[in-house]
Simulated scan of single mutants.
Amino acid sequence: MSGDREGLAALLMRVRSEDFVAGRLMEAVEAIPRRLFVPDGVADPYGEHTFPLPCGQTMPSARTAVRIAAALRVQPEHRVLEIGTGSGYVTALLARLGVHVVTLERYRTLSSAANERLRACSLSNVTFLQEDGRAGYAEAAPYDRIVVHGSFDELPKAFVEQMASGAMLVAAIGAGDGVQQIVRHHRQGSRFELTPLFPIRLQPLEIGKASLL
C-alpha cells in the first residue's frame, strides 16, 4: 500500500535523524511488514500511537518498538530472551538481528498468532513459550540480550543470573502506576552499567499463565 510505504519512509527518516538508528536494524524495519502485526483497519501502522491487541493488551508505536530494539544492540551471534511477545513485531525485528530468540507470552492466543505472523515472514529462529516471564527463563540461559515489555520497581535478581558476560538487558524501571524509564543494563563482569534511555508507561508483568485466552 502506498500509504504504508510513506509511513515507513517517515519512520525511517525520524529514527535515523532523532534516534540515530542505522545499519542492520534499519534493514530489518524495512523487511518486516508492520501491517501484518497491527489490527485490521489501521490507517497508518507506522503512526505515533499504540494499538489494541486481543486479551486486553496493547502494542507500542513503531518508533517505540524500533527504539527498544535499537537499545539492545543485537549482533548476529546473539541469543535473545524476550518477555512479552504481544503482536510479535519486536520479536520479528530481533529474529532478523540475532541467531535465536526465546519469547515468552502468558496468553496462548497472542503467542499462537505471533508465531503464525513470523512464519509468514519466513522467520524460523524463534522459540515461542507460554509463560508469565516474571523470573525470565532459566532453562535456556544464559542470554546475550534480554528485553522485558513490562515494568519493574527494580531489576529482579533472576534476570541478572541469566545474563551472559557482556550481556545487555532493556526494561522499564519505575513505579507501575506512573511513568518509568527504559533502562539498558550492561553486564561487564561483576559490574553493571546502567543507561537511562527514554520515558515510557508500561504495566508490571502479570502473574501466571492465562488459562483461558
Rank of each mutant, 00 (worst) to 15 (best):
L118D: 08
T109Y: 00
P76Q: 00
S122V: 00
A158M: 06
P142Y: 12
A62E: 09
H149M: 14
G41L: 09
G176R: 12
K157V: 14
T85S: 11
P60H: 12
P33S: 02
R35H: 11
R73K: 10
L155P: 05
V90T: 15
V66Y: 00
R108T: 04
S124E: 12
M163N: 07
R63C: 07
V42S: 03
A70C: 05
Y89C: 05
V90M: 14
G84H: 04
Y107R: 04
R73W: 00
L97I: 04
D144L: 10
L53K: 03
G56T: 11
L93P: 04
G41W: 10
M163L: 15
A92R: 09
M168I: 01
S112E: 15
A120Q: 13
A164T: 03
Y89M: 08
A113P: 00
A138E: 12
L81C: 08
R145A: 10
V170N: 10
C121G: 01
S61L: 03
C55S: 14
T58Y: 09
Q75L: 13
S87H: 07
F128G: 04
V148A: 09
A172Q: 14
F37D: 01
A114I: 01
F128D: 09
M59S: 12
T58D: 05
A167Y: 13
L93F: 14
E116D: 11
R67A: 06
A141D: 13
R145Q: 12
S87P: 02
R73L: 12
G84Y: 01
G174S: 14
A175V: 06
Y143V: 03
D144E: 13
V90I: 14
M59R: 05
T58L: 11
H78W: 02
T103K: 06
H49S: 13
R34Y: 08
M168H: 15
L129M: 11
E77M: 00
